[in-house]
């Protein structure tokens, strides 16, 4: 009887230990899901002002300065984005709006101030460059966990931060066939990503160059995407970031595409 109870205690202990270890090392899908949540969904809404530097291999630089507004609708992943371009001068006043849906194509509109035209635009967000940068639309507004199959490679360190290294393979045809990501084990932010083509050649590298806590949310405040093939790279610096600022749903409408809300666009 004593033997039996000892045996049960051992089983129970083993079960607990194994449960604890499962909890300590979540599955790859959970890690990516949490990373996407932290990177793209922090807070109920967000206002940022960002400067994007597009640098060609010769070091010649172009600049985009924009205000981005984002609001999450409910918990199902639906989001609204609004982007106002301050610079360059030739596109100043251009606004861009995305209604993002978790399970279908996003709706997108652009307003071109020179002709006062609001136009719905068709664009494949996985392949389209965002305003000529090395980021795609998808890099800006996020992808879904289910778009790729994920596997956890190992736990390691990256520049002094503890990270999970994850391999992701897109389920549908994409411009890359494999992505490696380094996800911070404590802050859940992606610190680095590498995209590879079918021949194993590196295509693009994402790096989170500066991370800090803003309004209680760990936030990447500076990021770079490098095109390994062309040598072109794009650096984004977030000059102003605020969460939970109280954006209204109706801000994300044709009305404000045409007349940017001065309260938020500064």
């Amino acid at each position: 009887m004593k033997f039996l109870s000892s045996f049960l205690a051992l089983i129970l202990t083993l079960a607990l230990v194994s449960a604890a270890s499962v909890q300590a090392q979540p599955g790859a899908d959970d890690i990516i899901a949490r990373s996407l949540e932290t990177f793209y969904y922090s807070g109920d809404d967000q206002r940022t002002r960002a400067t994007m530097r597009l640098v060609n291999p010769q070091g010649k630089e172009r600049r985009r300065v924009m205000t981005l507004l984002r609001k999450d609708l409910g918990g199902a992943g639906e989001q609204r984005y609004y982007i106002y371009f301050h610079e360059p001068a030739d596109v100043k006043g251009t606004t861009f709006m995305v209604w993002k849906y978790p399970a279908r194509e996003d709706d997108r509109w652009i307003f071109i101030p020179a002709i006062k035209l609001v136009r719905r635009i068709a664009a494949d967000d996985k392949r389209s460059s965002f305003v000529g940068s090395d980021f795609t639309y998808e890099d800006v507004s996020g992808r879904e966990v289910g778009d790729e199959s994920h596997s956890l490679l190992d736990e390691t360190d990256l520049d002094g931060r503890p990270v999970y290294r994850i391999e992701s393979v897109p389920k549908a045809k994409a411009d890359y066939v494999r992505r490696l990501s380094w996800v911070d084990r404590e802050r859940w932010l992606p610190l680095k990503e590498e995209y590879y083509d079918g021949r194993g050649e590196l295509l693009r590298t994402f790096t989170a160059d500066a991370v800090r806590e803003v309004d209680g949310h760990w936030t990447v405040t500076q990021r770079t995407m490098r095109d390994a093939q062309s040598g072109h790279h794009t650096e984004v610096v977030y000059d102003e970031i605020n969460y939970g600022v109280g954006l209204n749903d109706d801000l994300f409408s044709e009305r404000y595409l045409q007349r940017p809300p001065r309260q938020w666009i500064r």
């Binding site: 068709a122 664009a123 494949d124 389209s128 411009d175």
Partner: peptide, 10 residues
């Protein structure tokens, strides 16, 4: 009808 037919091509 308009749609993207390739990378950066509409």
């Amino acid at each position: 009808y308009s749609r993207q037919i390739g990378a950066d091509t509409t």
